[in-house]
Design a protein around this nucleic acid. Sequence first.
RNA 1: CGGGAUGUAGCUUAGUUGGUAAAGCGCCAGGCUGGGGGUCUGGAGACCCAGGGUUCGAGUCCCUGCAUCCCGACCA
Length: 509
Amino acid sequence: MAKQLITPRALNFPQWYQDVIAHAPDLYDESPVTGCITFGPLGTRLWQSIRDFLDPRFRAMGVENILLPTLIPESFFLREKEHVEGFAPEAAVVTHAGGSKLPEPYYVRPTSELLFVDWYGRSGKVQSYRDLPLLVNQWGSVVRWEKRPRAFLRTTEFYWHEGHCLFATKEQCRTFTLGILDLFAELCEEVLAIPVIRGDKPSHEKFAGADNTFTIESMMQDGKALQMGTSHMLSQNFLIDADGSPRVSFLNEKEERTVPYYDSWAVSSRLIGAMIMTHGDDDGIVIPPKAAAVQVCILPIFGPDAAENEKVLKAVRDLAVSISKSKTIYAVHGRANGFEETAGEITVRIDARDARLGDKTFHQIRMGTPIRIELGARDLAENSCMIKSRIRSRDDAQKVSLSDAPKAVEKMLDEDQKTLFARALEKRSKNIAEPENFADLKAALEAGQWALVAWDGTKETVEKLKAETSGGTYRCFAFDGKEDANGMMDPVSGKPSAFAKRIYVAKAY
RNA sequence: CGGGAUGUAGCUUAGUUGGUAAAGCGCCAGGCUGGGGGUCUGGAGACCCAGGGUUCGAGUCCCUGCAUCCCGACCA
Protein backbone atom coordinates (compact mmCIF):
# COMPACT_ATOMS: atom_id res chain seq x y z
CA MET A 1 0.00 0.00 0.00
CA ALA A 2 2.43 2.64 -1.20
CA LYS A 3 0.87 5.71 0.34
CA GLN A 4 1.50 9.03 -1.26
CA LEU A 5 3.69 10.67 1.31
CA ILE A 6 4.21 14.28 2.12
CA THR A 7 7.73 15.44 2.88
CA PRO A 8 7.77 16.55 6.53
CA ARG A 9 7.96 20.30 7.09
CA ALA A 10 11.06 19.98 9.21
CA LEU A 11 12.92 18.20 6.44
CA ASN A 12 12.29 20.53 3.52
CA PHE A 13 9.66 23.23 3.75
CA PRO A 14 9.42 24.17 0.05
CA GLN A 15 9.08 20.51 -0.84
CA TRP A 16 6.46 20.10 1.87
CA TYR A 17 4.47 22.97 0.36
CA GLN A 18 4.68 21.37 -3.07
CA ASP A 19 3.59 18.00 -1.75
CA VAL A 20 0.77 19.37 0.34
CA ILE A 21 -0.84 21.34 -2.44
CA ALA A 22 -0.31 18.50 -4.89
CA HIS A 23 -2.07 16.03 -2.60
CA ALA A 24 -4.98 18.30 -1.71
CA PRO A 25 -7.86 17.04 -3.85
CA ASP A 26 -9.49 19.73 -5.99
CA LEU A 27 -7.12 22.49 -4.89
CA TYR A 28 -5.32 23.29 -8.13
CA ASP A 29 -3.73 21.96 -11.26
CA GLU A 30 -0.88 23.09 -13.39
CA SER A 31 -1.90 24.80 -16.59
CA PRO A 32 -0.54 24.94 -20.12
CA VAL A 33 0.50 28.55 -19.53
CA THR A 34 3.90 29.26 -17.97
CA GLY A 35 3.63 30.22 -14.37
CA CYS A 36 -0.15 29.99 -14.30
CA ILE A 37 -2.22 27.53 -12.34
CA THR A 38 -5.82 26.43 -12.61
CA PHE A 39 -7.72 26.91 -9.40
CA GLY A 40 -9.69 23.74 -8.77
CA PRO A 41 -13.08 23.66 -7.04
CA LEU A 42 -11.44 23.84 -3.61
CA GLY A 43 -8.99 26.61 -4.50
CA THR A 44 -11.77 28.58 -6.12
CA ARG A 45 -14.00 28.25 -3.09
CA LEU A 46 -11.22 29.44 -0.83
CA TRP A 47 -10.86 32.56 -2.95
CA GLN A 48 -14.62 32.88 -2.87
CA SER A 49 -14.57 32.79 0.94
CA ILE A 50 -12.23 35.74 0.92
CA ARG A 51 -14.42 37.63 -1.52
CA ASP A 52 -17.51 36.82 0.48
CA PHE A 53 -15.93 38.37 3.54
CA LEU A 54 -14.56 41.48 1.88
CA ASP A 55 -17.13 42.47 -0.67
CA PRO A 56 -20.03 43.28 1.68
CA ARG A 57 -17.62 45.14 3.94
CA PHE A 58 -16.33 47.22 1.07
CA ARG A 59 -19.92 48.07 0.26
CA ALA A 60 -20.58 48.99 3.88
CA MET A 61 -17.69 51.44 3.62
CA GLY A 62 -19.38 53.00 0.62
CA VAL A 63 -17.26 51.38 -2.07
CA GLU A 64 -18.87 50.51 -5.42
CA ASN A 65 -17.60 47.78 -7.72
CA ILE A 66 -16.77 48.49 -11.34
CA LEU A 67 -15.15 46.45 -14.10
CA LEU A 68 -12.45 47.86 -16.33
CA PRO A 69 -10.78 46.33 -19.40
CA THR A 70 -8.05 43.74 -19.08
CA LEU A 71 -5.92 45.63 -21.59
CA ILE A 72 -4.21 48.98 -21.21
CA PRO A 73 -2.94 51.04 -24.15
CA GLU A 74 0.82 51.30 -24.08
CA SER A 75 0.69 55.07 -24.30
CA PHE A 76 -1.18 55.17 -20.99
CA PHE A 77 1.50 53.09 -19.48
CA LEU A 78 4.33 55.28 -20.68
CA ARG A 79 2.90 58.34 -18.95
CA GLU A 80 4.16 57.40 -15.55
CA LYS A 81 7.90 57.05 -15.38
CA GLU A 82 8.21 55.43 -12.00
CA HIS A 83 5.22 53.21 -12.63
CA VAL A 84 6.41 52.00 -16.01
CA GLU A 85 9.87 51.28 -14.65
CA GLY A 86 8.26 49.19 -11.96
CA PHE A 87 5.88 47.24 -14.15
CA ALA A 88 7.07 47.24 -17.76
CA PRO A 89 9.68 44.52 -17.15
CA GLU A 90 6.99 42.12 -16.02
CA ALA A 91 4.22 43.14 -18.39
CA ALA A 92 2.75 40.91 -21.08
CA VAL A 93 2.09 42.89 -24.24
CA VAL A 94 -0.48 42.23 -26.94
CA THR A 95 0.84 43.29 -30.32
CA HIS A 96 -1.54 41.51 -32.68
CA ALA A 97 -5.29 41.21 -32.77
CA GLY A 98 -7.99 40.65 -35.31
CA GLY A 99 -5.49 39.08 -37.65
CA SER A 100 -3.18 42.08 -37.93
CA LYS A 101 -0.62 44.07 -36.06
CA LEU A 102 -2.12 46.63 -33.74
CA PRO A 103 -1.27 50.29 -34.33
CA GLU A 104 -0.58 50.53 -30.62
CA PRO A 105 0.28 47.59 -28.39
CA TYR A 106 -1.82 46.81 -25.34
CA TYR A 107 -0.41 45.78 -22.00
CA VAL A 108 -2.25 43.05 -20.19
CA ARG A 109 -2.98 44.88 -16.97
CA PRO A 110 -0.48 44.23 -14.19
CA THR A 111 -2.49 46.72 -12.09
CA SER A 112 -5.11 49.23 -13.14
CA GLU A 113 -4.17 52.68 -11.83
CA LEU A 114 -3.99 54.12 -15.34
CA LEU A 115 -7.41 52.87 -16.33
CA PHE A 116 -8.98 54.08 -13.11
CA VAL A 117 -7.51 57.53 -13.61
CA ASP A 118 -8.84 57.60 -17.16
CA TRP A 119 -12.24 56.58 -15.88
CA TYR A 120 -12.27 59.29 -13.21
CA GLY A 121 -11.81 61.88 -15.93
CA ARG A 122 -14.76 60.75 -18.02
CA SER A 123 -18.26 62.18 -17.95
CA GLY A 124 -17.45 64.78 -15.36
CA LYS A 125 -17.41 62.42 -12.44
CA VAL A 126 -15.21 64.67 -10.36
CA GLN A 127 -15.99 68.36 -10.69
CA SER A 128 -16.92 69.46 -7.22
CA TYR A 129 -15.81 68.67 -3.69
CA ARG A 130 -19.35 67.31 -3.42
CA ASP A 131 -18.32 64.51 -5.79
CA LEU A 132 -15.73 63.26 -3.31
CA PRO A 133 -14.86 60.85 -1.99
CA LEU A 134 -15.20 58.58 -5.00
CA LEU A 135 -14.81 55.02 -3.79
CA VAL A 136 -14.54 52.18 -6.30
CA ASN A 137 -13.14 48.70 -6.43
CA GLN A 138 -12.64 46.07 -9.09
CA TRP A 139 -12.61 42.28 -8.70
CA GLY A 140 -10.53 40.58 -11.35
CA SER A 141 -7.18 39.20 -12.23
CA VAL A 142 -3.90 40.68 -13.38
CA VAL A 143 -0.84 39.35 -15.17
CA ARG A 144 2.73 39.87 -14.06
CA TRP A 145 5.49 37.94 -15.74
CA GLU A 146 7.38 37.04 -12.59
CA LYS A 147 10.63 35.17 -12.97
CA ARG A 148 9.93 32.64 -10.32
CA PRO A 149 6.35 31.51 -9.91
CA ARG A 150 5.12 29.49 -6.95
CA ALA A 151 1.61 28.10 -6.89
CA PHE A 152 -0.74 30.58 -5.20
CA LEU A 153 2.09 32.68 -3.76
CA ARG A 154 3.29 34.18 -6.99
CA THR A 155 1.64 33.11 -10.19
CA THR A 156 1.82 34.86 -13.53
CA GLU A 157 -1.88 35.54 -13.56
CA PHE A 158 -3.47 35.92 -10.17
CA TYR A 159 -6.83 36.88 -8.78
CA TRP A 160 -7.32 39.93 -6.64
CA HIS A 161 -9.38 43.00 -6.18
CA GLU A 162 -8.07 46.52 -6.45
CA GLY A 163 -9.71 49.44 -4.74
CA HIS A 164 -9.00 52.88 -6.16
CA CYS A 165 -10.41 55.90 -4.39
CA LEU A 166 -10.26 59.67 -4.60
CA PHE A 167 -10.51 62.04 -1.66
CA ALA A 168 -10.66 65.79 -1.25
CA THR A 169 -7.91 65.91 1.32
CA LYS A 170 -4.78 64.02 2.12
CA GLU A 171 -6.00 63.38 5.64
CA GLN A 172 -9.21 61.76 4.43
CA CYS A 173 -7.20 59.66 2.04
CA ARG A 174 -4.85 58.55 4.77
CA THR A 175 -7.65 57.68 7.18
CA PHE A 176 -9.44 55.60 4.59
CA THR A 177 -6.27 53.87 3.43
CA LEU A 178 -5.45 52.87 6.97
CA GLY A 179 -9.04 51.77 7.54
CA ILE A 180 -8.78 49.42 4.60
CA LEU A 181 -5.58 47.99 6.02
CA ASP A 182 -7.48 47.30 9.24
CA LEU A 183 -10.12 45.47 7.24
CA PHE A 184 -7.44 43.38 5.57
CA ALA A 185 -5.96 42.62 8.98
CA GLU A 186 -9.39 41.58 10.21
CA LEU A 187 -9.73 39.24 7.24
CA CYS A 188 -6.38 37.65 7.99
CA GLU A 189 -6.77 37.35 11.73
CA GLU A 190 -10.49 36.60 12.12
CA VAL A 191 -11.13 34.52 9.03
CA LEU A 192 -7.80 33.06 7.93
CA ALA A 193 -6.50 32.84 11.52
CA ILE A 194 -3.21 34.39 10.51
CA PRO A 195 -1.74 37.06 12.79
CA VAL A 196 -0.39 40.08 10.94
CA ILE A 197 1.85 43.01 11.69
CA ARG A 198 0.61 46.29 10.30
CA GLY A 199 3.15 48.82 9.26
CA ASP A 200 4.79 51.19 6.82
CA LYS A 201 6.94 49.85 4.04
CA PRO A 202 10.37 51.44 3.88
CA SER A 203 10.66 53.71 0.84
CA HIS A 204 12.66 51.26 -1.28
CA GLU A 205 9.90 48.64 -0.88
CA LYS A 206 7.04 50.95 -1.84
CA PHE A 207 4.65 50.40 -4.72
CA ALA A 208 5.93 51.94 -7.95
CA GLY A 209 4.17 55.29 -7.84
CA ALA A 210 3.10 55.50 -4.20
CA ASP A 211 4.01 58.06 -1.58
CA ASN A 212 3.44 55.56 1.19
CA THR A 213 2.76 51.86 1.17
CA PHE A 214 1.09 50.30 4.18
CA THR A 215 1.43 46.57 4.59
CA ILE A 216 0.37 43.62 6.64
CA GLU A 217 3.08 41.01 7.09
CA SER A 218 2.87 37.47 8.39
CA MET A 219 5.29 34.79 9.43
CA MET A 220 5.00 31.45 7.71
CA GLN A 221 5.89 28.21 9.48
CA ASP A 222 9.43 28.28 8.13
CA GLY A 223 9.91 31.77 9.54
CA LYS A 224 9.78 33.52 6.19
CA ALA A 225 7.68 36.64 5.86
CA LEU A 226 4.82 37.03 3.43
CA GLN A 227 3.22 40.30 2.47
CA MET A 228 -0.47 39.61 2.92
CA GLY A 229 -1.94 42.81 1.59
CA THR A 230 -1.16 46.43 0.95
CA SER A 231 -2.82 49.79 0.76
CA HIS A 232 -1.05 52.66 -0.93
CA MET A 233 -1.20 56.41 -0.55
CA LEU A 234 -0.75 57.38 -4.16
CA SER A 235 -1.56 60.97 -3.20
CA GLN A 236 -1.53 63.08 -6.35
CA ASN A 237 0.65 60.74 -8.35
CA PHE A 238 -1.08 59.53 -11.51
CA LEU A 239 -3.42 62.53 -11.32
CA ILE A 240 -1.06 65.13 -12.77
CA ASP A 241 0.44 65.07 -16.26
CA ALA A 242 4.13 65.41 -16.90
CA ASP A 243 3.49 69.00 -18.04
CA GLY A 244 1.89 69.79 -14.69
CA SER A 245 -1.73 69.91 -15.81
CA PRO A 246 -4.11 67.88 -13.68
CA ARG A 247 -5.87 64.87 -15.17
CA VAL A 248 -8.49 64.99 -12.47
CA SER A 249 -9.40 68.06 -10.46
CA PHE A 250 -12.31 69.65 -8.65
CA LEU A 251 -13.40 72.96 -7.19
CA ASN A 252 -13.21 73.03 -3.42
CA GLU A 253 -15.39 75.08 -1.07
CA LYS A 254 -13.21 78.10 -1.67
CA GLU A 255 -13.65 77.74 -5.43
CA GLU A 256 -10.03 76.71 -5.85
CA ARG A 257 -9.13 74.15 -8.49
CA THR A 258 -7.73 71.24 -6.53
CA VAL A 259 -6.21 67.86 -7.33
CA PRO A 260 -7.70 65.09 -5.22
CA TYR A 261 -5.78 62.48 -3.24
CA TYR A 262 -5.70 58.96 -4.52
CA ASP A 263 -5.24 55.61 -2.86
CA SER A 264 -5.23 51.99 -4.00
CA TRP A 265 -5.39 48.75 -2.04
CA ALA A 266 -5.46 45.03 -2.64
CA VAL A 267 -5.26 41.52 -1.38
CA SER A 268 -4.83 38.60 -3.73
CA SER A 269 -5.26 34.87 -4.13
CA ARG A 270 -1.80 34.64 -2.58
CA LEU A 271 -3.68 34.48 0.72
CA ILE A 272 -4.63 30.91 -0.11
CA GLY A 273 -0.94 30.02 -0.13
CA ALA A 274 -0.48 31.96 3.08
CA MET A 275 -3.21 29.98 4.76
CA ILE A 276 -1.66 26.71 3.68
CA MET A 277 1.84 27.70 4.77
CA THR A 278 0.58 28.96 8.11
CA HIS A 279 -1.69 26.13 9.19
CA GLY A 280 -0.78 23.06 7.15
CA ASP A 281 0.73 20.04 8.85
CA ASP A 282 2.55 16.92 7.73
CA ASP A 283 -0.77 15.30 6.82
CA GLY A 284 -1.74 18.06 4.42
CA ILE A 285 -3.52 21.36 4.29
CA VAL A 286 -5.55 22.69 7.21
CA ILE A 287 -8.29 25.21 6.56
CA PRO A 288 -9.53 27.40 9.41
CA PRO A 289 -13.29 26.91 9.87
CA LYS A 290 -14.22 30.45 8.92
CA ALA A 291 -12.24 30.29 5.69
CA ALA A 292 -13.36 26.79 4.80
CA ALA A 293 -15.77 26.21 1.96
CA VAL A 294 -17.01 23.11 3.72
CA GLN A 295 -16.81 23.15 7.50
CA VAL A 296 -18.10 19.67 8.15
CA CYS A 297 -17.97 16.47 6.16
CA ILE A 298 -20.18 13.63 7.31
CA LEU A 299 -18.92 10.18 6.47
CA PRO A 300 -21.63 7.55 6.50
CA ILE A 301 -20.31 4.12 7.39
CA PHE A 302 -21.89 1.54 5.16
CA GLY A 303 -22.13 -2.16 5.87
CA PRO A 304 -23.33 -5.17 3.88
CA ASP A 305 -27.02 -4.63 4.64
CA ALA A 306 -28.59 -2.36 2.02
CA ALA A 307 -31.68 -1.52 4.05
CA GLU A 308 -29.50 -0.61 6.98
CA ASN A 309 -27.39 1.59 4.75
CA GLU A 310 -30.48 3.45 3.61
CA LYS A 311 -31.33 4.23 7.21
CA VAL A 312 -27.80 5.42 7.86
CA LEU A 313 -27.88 7.69 4.84
CA LYS A 314 -31.19 9.15 5.88
CA ALA A 315 -29.85 9.83 9.38
CA VAL A 316 -26.77 11.42 7.84
CA ARG A 317 -28.91 13.71 5.70
CA ASP A 318 -31.02 14.69 8.69
CA LEU A 319 -27.88 15.45 10.62
CA ALA A 320 -26.50 17.56 7.77
CA VAL A 321 -29.70 19.56 7.71
CA SER A 322 -29.73 20.13 11.45
CA ILE A 323 -26.09 21.21 11.54
CA SER A 324 -26.26 23.53 8.56
CA LYS A 325 -29.74 24.83 9.33
CA SER A 326 -30.56 24.60 5.66
CA LYS A 327 -33.05 22.17 4.25
CA THR A 328 -31.76 21.90 0.73
CA ILE A 329 -29.48 19.01 -0.02
CA TYR A 330 -28.01 18.85 -3.47
CA ALA A 331 -25.65 16.49 -5.22
CA VAL A 332 -22.21 17.77 -6.12
CA HIS A 333 -20.83 16.73 -9.48
CA GLY A 334 -17.39 18.18 -9.69
CA ARG A 335 -14.19 16.26 -9.86
CA ALA A 336 -15.79 13.24 -8.19
CA ASN A 337 -19.40 12.27 -7.85
CA GLY A 338 -21.12 10.83 -4.81
CA PHE A 339 -20.97 13.94 -2.67
CA GLU A 340 -23.97 15.78 -1.35
CA GLU A 341 -23.95 19.17 0.22
CA THR A 342 -26.09 21.56 2.13
CA ALA A 343 -25.28 25.23 2.42
CA GLY A 344 -26.50 27.19 5.39
CA GLU A 345 -24.76 28.97 8.20
CA ILE A 346 -22.43 26.01 8.14
CA THR A 347 -21.71 24.17 4.93
CA VAL A 348 -21.99 20.44 5.42
CA ARG A 349 -20.88 17.90 2.89
CA ILE A 350 -21.78 14.24 2.85
CA ASP A 351 -19.37 11.77 1.37
CA ALA A 352 -21.93 9.21 0.28
CA ARG A 353 -19.55 7.48 -2.09
CA ASP A 354 -19.40 3.75 -1.99
CA ALA A 355 -15.91 3.72 -0.54
CA ARG A 356 -14.19 2.56 2.59
CA LEU A 357 -14.27 4.83 5.57
CA GLY A 358 -10.49 5.05 5.63
CA ASP A 359 -10.44 6.39 2.08
CA LYS A 360 -13.07 8.95 2.81
CA THR A 361 -11.32 10.02 5.98
CA PHE A 362 -8.03 10.48 4.26
CA HIS A 363 -9.63 12.43 1.46
CA GLN A 364 -11.00 14.95 3.96
CA ILE A 365 -7.73 15.18 5.85
CA ARG A 366 -5.92 16.04 2.65
CA MET A 367 -8.56 18.64 1.83
CA GLY A 368 -8.13 20.23 5.23
CA THR A 369 -11.80 19.97 6.13
CA PRO A 370 -12.14 21.21 9.74
CA ILE A 371 -14.55 18.57 11.04
CA ARG A 372 -15.45 15.02 10.11
CA ILE A 373 -18.44 13.21 11.50
CA GLU A 374 -18.70 9.45 11.31
CA LEU A 375 -22.08 7.79 11.46
CA GLY A 376 -22.82 4.10 10.97
CA ALA A 377 -25.51 1.62 11.90
CA ARG A 378 -24.07 1.07 15.36
CA ASP A 379 -24.04 4.78 16.07
CA LEU A 380 -27.55 5.06 14.76
CA ALA A 381 -28.68 2.35 17.14
CA GLU A 382 -27.31 4.47 19.95
CA ASN A 383 -28.58 7.65 18.35
CA SER A 384 -25.08 9.09 18.31
CA CYS A 385 -22.20 9.99 16.02
CA MET A 386 -18.43 10.53 16.26
CA ILE A 387 -17.07 14.01 15.75
CA LYS A 388 -13.41 14.51 14.83
CA SER A 389 -11.40 17.63 14.30
CA ARG A 390 -8.77 18.04 11.60
CA ILE A 391 -6.38 19.69 14.01
CA ARG A 392 -6.85 17.53 17.09
CA SER A 393 -5.37 14.17 17.86
CA ARG A 394 -7.52 11.30 16.70
CA ASP A 395 -7.88 10.24 20.30
CA ASP A 396 -9.88 13.41 20.82
CA ALA A 397 -12.87 12.05 18.91
CA GLN A 398 -16.11 13.03 20.59
CA LYS A 399 -19.05 10.68 20.81
CA VAL A 400 -22.11 12.89 20.77
CA SER A 401 -25.85 12.26 20.56
CA LEU A 402 -27.39 13.25 17.24
CA SER A 403 -29.44 15.96 18.88
CA ASP A 404 -26.39 17.47 20.57
CA ALA A 405 -24.25 17.29 17.44
CA PRO A 406 -25.08 20.73 16.01
CA LYS A 407 -24.02 22.45 19.22
CA ALA A 408 -20.92 20.31 19.60
CA VAL A 409 -19.92 21.10 16.02
CA GLU A 410 -20.40 24.79 16.54
CA LYS A 411 -18.28 24.70 19.66
CA MET A 412 -15.52 22.70 18.02
CA LEU A 413 -15.40 24.99 15.00
CA ASP A 414 -15.15 27.98 17.25
CA GLU A 415 -12.42 26.48 19.41
CA ASP A 416 -10.40 25.27 16.45
CA GLN A 417 -10.53 28.66 14.79
CA LYS A 418 -9.08 30.17 17.96
CA THR A 419 -6.51 27.42 18.37
CA LEU A 420 -5.16 27.94 14.88
CA PHE A 421 -4.76 31.65 15.45
CA ALA A 422 -3.16 31.12 18.85
CA ARG A 423 -0.69 28.61 17.43
CA ALA A 424 0.37 30.95 14.67
CA LEU A 425 0.68 33.85 17.07
CA GLU A 426 2.78 31.83 19.47
CA LYS A 427 5.04 30.71 16.65
CA ARG A 428 5.56 34.31 15.66
CA SER A 429 6.12 35.71 19.14
CA LYS A 430 8.71 33.07 19.88
CA ASN A 431 10.59 33.88 16.73
CA ILE A 432 11.23 37.58 16.70
CA ALA A 433 14.77 38.32 17.80
CA GLU A 434 16.17 41.69 18.83
CA PRO A 435 19.82 41.38 17.88
CA GLU A 436 22.25 44.16 18.68
CA ASN A 437 25.05 43.11 16.39
CA PHE A 438 25.30 41.75 12.86
CA ALA A 439 26.41 38.28 13.94
CA ASP A 440 23.30 37.84 16.06
CA LEU A 441 21.14 39.23 13.28
CA LYS A 442 22.59 36.74 10.82
CA ALA A 443 22.11 33.92 13.29
CA ALA A 444 18.47 34.89 13.85
CA LEU A 445 17.66 34.91 10.13
CA GLU A 446 19.58 31.69 9.70
CA ALA A 447 17.42 30.13 12.41
CA GLY A 448 14.24 31.15 10.60
CA GLN A 449 13.45 34.11 12.77
CA TRP A 450 12.59 37.71 12.18
CA ALA A 451 14.65 40.47 13.71
CA LEU A 452 13.63 43.85 15.02
CA VAL A 453 16.52 46.22 14.47
CA ALA A 454 17.59 49.82 14.15
CA TRP A 455 18.29 50.91 10.57
CA ASP A 456 20.43 53.70 9.23
CA GLY A 457 18.10 54.11 6.27
CA THR A 458 20.75 53.79 3.58
CA LYS A 459 20.63 51.80 0.39
CA GLU A 460 24.09 50.41 1.09
CA THR A 461 22.81 48.81 4.25
CA VAL A 462 19.83 47.33 2.44
CA GLU A 463 22.19 45.73 -0.04
CA LYS A 464 24.66 44.59 2.55
CA LEU A 465 21.93 42.94 4.58
CA LYS A 466 20.59 41.15 1.55
CA ALA A 467 23.98 40.00 0.34
CA GLU A 468 25.35 38.83 3.66
CA THR A 469 22.24 37.13 5.00
CA SER A 470 21.29 35.46 1.72
CA GLY A 471 18.12 37.39 1.20
CA GLY A 472 17.24 39.33 4.35
CA THR A 473 14.92 42.25 3.62
CA TYR A 474 13.48 45.20 5.50
CA ARG A 475 9.79 44.44 5.89
CA CYS A 476 8.11 47.30 7.73
CA PHE A 477 7.99 49.76 10.59
CA ALA A 478 5.15 48.43 12.73
CA PHE A 479 2.39 50.92 13.53
CA ASP A 480 2.37 49.74 17.11
CA GLY A 481 6.17 49.66 17.38
CA LYS A 482 7.84 51.53 20.21
CA GLU A 483 9.73 54.70 19.36
CA ASP A 484 12.85 53.52 21.06
CA ALA A 485 15.36 53.50 18.23
CA ASN A 486 16.80 56.97 18.67
CA GLY A 487 20.39 56.53 19.69
CA MET A 488 20.43 52.85 18.72
CA MET A 489 23.02 51.56 16.31
CA ASP A 490 22.22 49.81 13.07
CA PRO A 491 23.66 46.30 13.58
CA VAL A 492 24.46 45.97 9.88
CA SER A 493 26.37 49.20 9.34
CA GLY A 494 27.22 50.22 12.90
CA LYS A 495 25.79 53.68 12.18
CA PRO A 496 23.06 55.40 14.17
CA SER A 497 19.41 54.72 13.50
CA ALA A 498 17.78 57.12 11.06
CA PHE A 499 14.31 56.43 12.42
CA ALA A 500 12.46 56.67 15.68
CA LYS A 501 11.27 53.09 15.34
CA ARG A 502 13.07 49.86 14.74
CA ILE A 503 12.19 47.90 11.63
CA TYR A 504 11.41 44.23 11.04
CA VAL A 505 13.92 42.27 9.03
CA ALA A 506 13.14 38.87 7.54
CA LYS A 507 13.64 36.63 4.60
CA ALA A 508 10.53 36.77 2.52
CA TYR A 509 8.53 35.01 -0.15
C1' C B 1 17.53 35.84 -16.71
C1' G B 2 22.05 32.73 -14.49
C1' G B 3 23.44 27.75 -11.75
C1' G B 4 21.62 22.72 -10.67
C1' A B 5 18.10 18.64 -11.14
C1' U B 6 14.13 16.22 -13.46
C1' G B 7 10.63 14.84 -17.66
C1' U B 8 8.44 6.72 -19.08
C1' A B 9 0.29 4.73 -17.64
C1' G B 10 -3.96 9.35 -13.72
C1' C B 11 0.22 9.12 -9.61
C1' U B 12 5.19 7.25 -7.80
C1' U B 13 8.79 4.86 -10.21
C1' A B 14 11.89 0.34 -12.85
C1' G B 15 13.99 -0.19 -17.51
C1' U B 16 20.81 -3.72 -17.27
C1' U B 17 26.47 -2.96 -22.58
C1' G B 18 20.86 0.65 -27.90
C1' G B 19 16.57 -4.74 -30.06
C1' U B 20 9.57 -0.94 -30.24
C1' A B 21 8.13 -1.17 -22.20
C1' A B 22 7.64 -3.23 -16.25
C1' A B 23 5.67 -2.72 -11.27
C1' G B 24 3.03 -0.59 -7.07
C1' C B 25 -0.83 2.75 -6.15
C1' G B 26 -5.19 4.60 -8.56
C1' C B 27 -9.22 3.18 -12.06
C1' C B 28 -13.14 -0.73 -13.88
C1' A B 29 -15.96 -5.66 -12.71
C1' G B 30 -16.95 -9.10 -8.79
C1' G B 31 -16.09 -11.41 -3.59
C1' C B 32 -14.96 -10.79 1.72
C1' U B 33 -15.07 -6.33 4.36
C1' G B 34 -17.07 -0.93 10.14
C1' G B 35 -14.01 3.95 12.60
C1' G B 36 -6.50 7.27 9.39
C1' G B 37 -6.02 5.20 2.79
C1' G B 38 -8.02 -3.52 4.42
C1' U B 39 -7.98 -7.91 1.22
C1' C B 40 -8.66 -11.63 -2.91
C1' U B 41 -9.68 -12.61 -8.24
C1' G B 42 -10.09 -10.72 -13.07
C1' G B 43 -9.55 -6.36 -16.42
C1' A B 44 -8.65 -1.56 -19.03
C1' G B 45 -4.67 1.82 -19.38
C1' A B 46 1.68 4.59 -21.77
C1' C B 47 4.15 4.34 -28.41
C1' C B 48 8.40 6.61 -23.25
C1' C B 49 7.92 15.90 -22.93
C1' A B 50 8.53 18.00 -28.29
C1' G B 51 11.53 18.39 -32.74
C1' G B 52 15.84 17.02 -35.15
C1' G B 53 20.25 13.73 -35.58
C1' U B 54 23.55 9.10 -35.12
C1' U B 55 22.07 3.82 -36.17
C1' C B 56 19.68 -1.86 -39.71
C1' G B 57 17.24 -0.53 -35.06
C1' A B 58 16.66 4.63 -29.49
C1' G B 59 12.94 5.23 -23.57
C1' U B 60 18.24 4.13 -23.74
C1' C B 61 23.53 8.00 -27.39
C1' C B 62 24.00 13.47 -29.44
C1' C B 63 21.81 18.47 -30.38
C1' U B 64 17.92 22.03 -29.84
C1' G B 65 13.53 23.50 -27.66
C1' C B 66 9.67 23.27 -23.92
C1' A B 67 7.89 22.31 -18.98
C1' U B 68 8.39 21.53 -13.74
C1' C B 69 11.23 21.77 -9.12
C1' C B 70 15.47 23.68 -6.12
C1' C B 71 19.20 27.85 -5.44
C1' G B 72 20.11 32.96 -7.01
C1' A B 73 18.83 37.73 -9.43
C1' C B 74 13.83 40.10 -10.14
C1' C B 75 9.22 40.81 -7.64
C1' A B 76 2.92 46.13 -5.05
